[in-house]
């Protein structure tokens, strides 16, 4: 499975009217990789992800996810991916347990599997105390961790995380990245967008998107060497300033 491409994108574009939110991007992601999809506000990250997960159709270009074509095989793609949206998207008026049960259910897990997952998850996240509380009462960091775990419930091959750590405190961010590593270790491919450049250092490879185009794509180490800087932040600033 290693080294096989699970995401292949070629000249993918999305136009809103005349405006190219995503402008002919090409890249691939290997199985098991942690791929950082960086870019400033409005660079087009979310728009690109929505095309990859099959809820927005591209204007032009090609893309396959887990071997399935985004135009024709969106239904098969959906069975193989997990998605955590930029906007927190669990049900606030359901309890932690109810959310897990519900999302397990719509992914077609059996009752037994759901029961097992629910116990595991509550234990791992240390949510025993609040398992029966409404999600609305949880702090943001916990909600985000829960949302991530929920997106992994059905053991997807690839998981798309759109700014999973936005607005979260540094300690929780670290814990979050530990969870990401664990999932990657278990063989899940991680496609993650972020604003935090320190997080870019945790990725196997990163792409940097500016105004709808991918301006750089490599390992953090090589990028830093290429732009002769010490931090990803400086790489990013150089690119963004053009």
């Amino acid at each position: 499975m290693k080294n096989k491409n699970v995401i292949e994108v070629e000249n993918l574009s999305k136009l809103f009217g005349d405006f190219a939110a995503v402008n002919s991007i090409s890249f691939h992601v290997k199985a098991g990789e942690i791929f950082g999809f960086l870019g400033a506000n409005g660079a087009g990250k979310t728009t690109a992800i929505k095309m990859l997960i099959g809820i927005s159709s591209p204007t032009s270009g090609k893309a396959t996810i887990a071997g399935f074509d985004v135009y024709k095989e969106a239904e098969s793609i959906k069975k193989n991916i997990g998605y955590m949206s930029q906007k927190f998207a669990l049900y606030d008026d359901l309890t932690v347990k109810e959310n897990i049960t519900f999302f397990g259910g719509i992914y077609g897990l059996s009752k037994k599997q759901i029961d097992r997952k629910r116990c595991e998850l509550v234990d791992e996240l240390g949510l025993q105390e609040v398992a029966n509380s409404l999600v609305s009462s949880l702090p943001l960091g916990w909600k985000q961790k829960l949302a991530f775990s929920v997106s992994l419930l059905h053991d997807p091959k690839i998981v798309f995380l759109d700014e999973p750590t936005g607005g979260v405190d540094p300690i929780t961010r670290r814990q979050f990245w530990e969870m990401i590593y664990k999932a990657a270790h278990n063989g899940t491919t991680i496609f993650v967008t972020t604003h935090y450049m320190d997080e870019a250092e945790y990725c196997d490879r990163v792409s940097i998107m500016v105004n709808g185009k991918i301006e750089a794509l490599d390992t953090p180490k090589k990028l830093k060497a290429h732009y002769k800087t010490d931090t990803m932040n400086d790489v990013f600033l150089k690119l963004a300033r053009g």
Binding site: I53, G54, I55, E75, K78, K79, I81, Y83, S85, Q86, K87, F88, A89, L90, Y91, D92, F103, I106, Y107, G108
Partner: peptide, 14 residues
């Protein structure tokens, strides 16, 4: 509005 519709549409539900 909550963004959960997106999650539902990404799931295998039609």
């Amino acid at each position: 509005e909550q963004g959960t519709m997106e999650i539902l549409l990404v799931s295998p539900l039609k």
